[in-house]
Design a protein around this nucleic acid. Structure first.
Length: 609
RNA sequence: GCGCCCGUAGCUCAGCUGGAUAGAGUACUUCCCUCCGAAGGAAGGAGUCGGGGGUUCGAAUCCCUCCGGGCGCGCCA
């Protein structure tokens, strides 16, 4: 497999044996890119520089082995990474620090020897040894200039990668039961799940967005009973009100609508309310359709659409549940006790065994869950992401155990779970707990109506999903610099504004001339901005690989900051045509990356604000 | 009691899967528009990275342990 990595020295490829144990990230990336090359857009020049440096160092190591400076089998997992500060150059490697012991030499001495053994310094301004033994690479500006060109050439495709090319990922999220309006937690799920889907898509995956819901269980029955009670004019807690009835005002609306024989359009079907208060089944169907419709409208308002709505009932209808049980029994991981059928989940890391078929013959919820995930596997999702509220984490061990017990070759790390922590909503320094309509919780609709879609989406993905989130409504509404959404969008609008201003003055921007004059942009702000731009594709890849959309939000904030700083220190529309074109070219590239990044978050990029 | 997550500046949070003096925003002080949008920028102070051990040349990051907070532990879904 290492032969695919294009490492050659004076026309002779270095024997793979030498670096079999080198397993750095960038090397693996190199392989993946190699395999999927025919899908590749133009690779980011800076990325190639990084991979190139990695190869040069491997080469230097080989040379030092050959002259016995290094022992023949010395190997390490070294990295070439971006530096934190410009004074350390553009890229740095820790290879000398890691190999020092094996070589029996001081890290700095070894670094010196490695630098001397580098086969080429093309594209590098200088190479320095610094600190305890880091090797710092200063890349010539031309590489960054090429990134600017690629950003403009590729436009909306800039930053897209190919790590998932030819493979399919299923992203399941929200998966709310249709028993009421979506709440803030669902909003966080929707924002995170949709961003993850966008990120995977940006990395070349074919993505299926999937919404799973229980359309027949006890909660749905409870919904039907609640609507029926309301239809009979029974208020919550009045005599005849069901024990665990849903108390929100929306239940009353559904009941009225049912009695009025309204027609609701959901999941591609029109359904009229039957109006018969005694027909619980008709009430149930109507209530589910109404809630599905309402959730769908909320999601649409949020800019989220699904490819598949997967019904739990279909697993029974297709016999998938029965099939799953049969397989589990056949593999000998079950036993009967107390009239129930148990699965030995303890064999797969659970803390106690679980009932899968109750003594009354019905199944516990987790069995359909296993059957559902099994269906994802059968449908060929090489990567399956399940986004859930962290309050469901208890079920993970069970489902994973069930999948392993099926023994169908499903690997340990499949599916991948992304759990999000609770959201608390604050207004005026106090926690908001209720909405008029739902009664007991803040709805997603409340947030969208109050702060808008862009701010809601941004705020809900701006933090790591596994940390709790405080949603500050006042901040999200603010049309000021306090608000990071406006800060980023403002940077985008500013570029557009400069372009408008240019036109008003009857001037034109010559893109090709600008690209050829980028060397004129040698101020610190300009250099810093180009470095930021060049990081974009790495951010997209890391965010997709690690399922961490907040990385994009953080990055955009930094890119916007670099642009605002630049804007305040430089004039774009200057008399020197070359400088003007170059600056406008840089600004246009920034606009493109801001646009692409905001799009990954599902946030708009306005031309003016 | 057991399991998962979190603990970084007064507050809200990053920290690129182990690197070089720990970073933003906010708040607080002080500056910058006759000039492309001041919804912006520049400068300053602010930290025992919850405590304690360990691994390592090197730890906010990995391991152990304790403390504090959140969530979950049904023949409910």
């Amino acid at each position: 497999m290492f032969e695919t990595y294009p490492l050659h020295r004076e026309g002779v490829s270095v024997a793979p044996l030498l670096y079999v144990s080198v397993t750095s990230r960038s090397l693996r990336r190199g392989e993946q890119r190699g395999q999927a090359l025919h899908y590749a857009a133009i690779p980011s020049p800076i990325r190639s520089v990084k991979d190139h440096l990695h190869a040069l160092i491997l080469d230097a190591i080989a040379t030092l082995r050959a002259d016995a400076t290094l022992p023949p089998h010395a190997s390490v997992e070294f990295v070439v990474e971006r530096t934190r500060s410009r004074e350390h150059g553009d890229f740095a490697t820790n290879v000398a620090l890691l190999l020092a012991k094996a070589a029996g030499r001081k890290p700095r001495d070894l670094a010196t020897a490695l630098v001397a053994a580098l086969p080429s310094r093309e594209g590098l301004e200088k190479v320095e040894i610094a600190g305890p033994g880091f090797i710092n690479f200063f890349v010539s500006p031309a590489a960054y200039h090429r990134d600017v060109r690629v950003a403009l050439d590729q436009g909306a495709a800039f930053g897209r990668g190919v790590t998932g090319a030819g493979r399919t990922a299923g992203v399941e999220f929200v998966s709310a039961n249709p028993t009421g309006p979506l709440h803030v937690g669902h909003g966080r799920a929707a924002a995170i799940g949709d961003c993850i889907a966008r990120l995977l898509d940006a990395n070349g995956w074919s993505v299926v967005r999937e919404f799973y819901y229980n359309d027949a269980g006890a909660q749905i029955n409870n919904l039907a009973l609640s609507v029926q009670a309301r239809a009979r004019g029974i208020e919550p807690d009045a005599p005849g009100w069901p024990d665990d009835g849903y108390r929100g005002e929306y239940i009353k609306d559904v009941a009225r609508s049912y009695l009025d024989r309204d027609v609701v359009h959901a999941d591609g079907v029109d359904l009229a309310g039957a109006g018969d208060v005694d027909d619980l089944d008709a009430i149930r169907r109507f209530a589910v359709a109404t809630m599905r419709r309402e959730q769908d409208l909320d999601l649409r308002a949020f800019g989220v659409a699904f490819d598949t709505y997967f019904l739990e009932s279909s697993l029974y209808a297709d016999g998938k549940v029965e099939e799953t049980v049969r397989e589990l029994v056949a593999h000998g991981h079950t036993y009967e006790e107390g009239g129930a059928l148990w699965l030995r989940t303890t064999q797969f890391g659970d803390d106690k065994d679980r009932v899968m078929r109750k003594s009354d013959g019905t199944f516990t919820y987790f069995l359909p869950d296993v059957a559902y995930h099994r269906s994802k596997w059968q449908r060929g999702y090489q990567r399956a992401i399940t986004e859930l509220g962290s309050d469901h984490h208890g079920s993970l061990a069970r489902v994973k155990a069930g999948l392993l017990a099926l023994d169908t070759g499903i690997p340990q790390g499949w599916p991948e779970y992304v759990l999000h922590q609770m959201v608390t909503v604050m207004r005026g320094g106090e926690e908001v707990k209720l909405s008029k309509r739902a009664g007991s919780y803040v709805t997603l609709r409340d947030l969208i109506d109050e702060v808008g879609r862009d701010a809601t989406r941004y705020f809900l993905i701006a933090r790591k999903s596994d940390s709790q989130l405080v949603f500050d409504i006042d901040l999200a509404r603010a049309q000021t610099n306090d608000n990071p959404v406006y800060y980023i969008q403002y940077a985008h609008a500013r570029v557009a504004s400069v372009m408008r201003q240019l036109a008003e003055r009857g001037l034109e921007w010559n893109r090709e001339n600008g690209l050829s004059q980028l060397a004129r942009l040698d101020s610190e702000h300009e250099q810093a901005l180009m470095v930021e731009l060049s990081r974009y594709s790495e951010v997209v890849e890391a965010a997709g690989e690690n399922l961490e959309p907040h990385l994009v939000a953080t990055y955009l904030r930094e890119l916007a900051a670099a642009f605002h700083a630049y804007y305040n220190t430089h004039q774009f529309i200057v008399d020197d045509i070359d400088v003007r074109d170059a600056r406008l070219t840089l600004a246009a590239a920034v606009r493109q990356v801001l646009f692409n990044g905001l799009d990954l978050l599902g946030v708009s990029a306005p031309e003016s604000m």
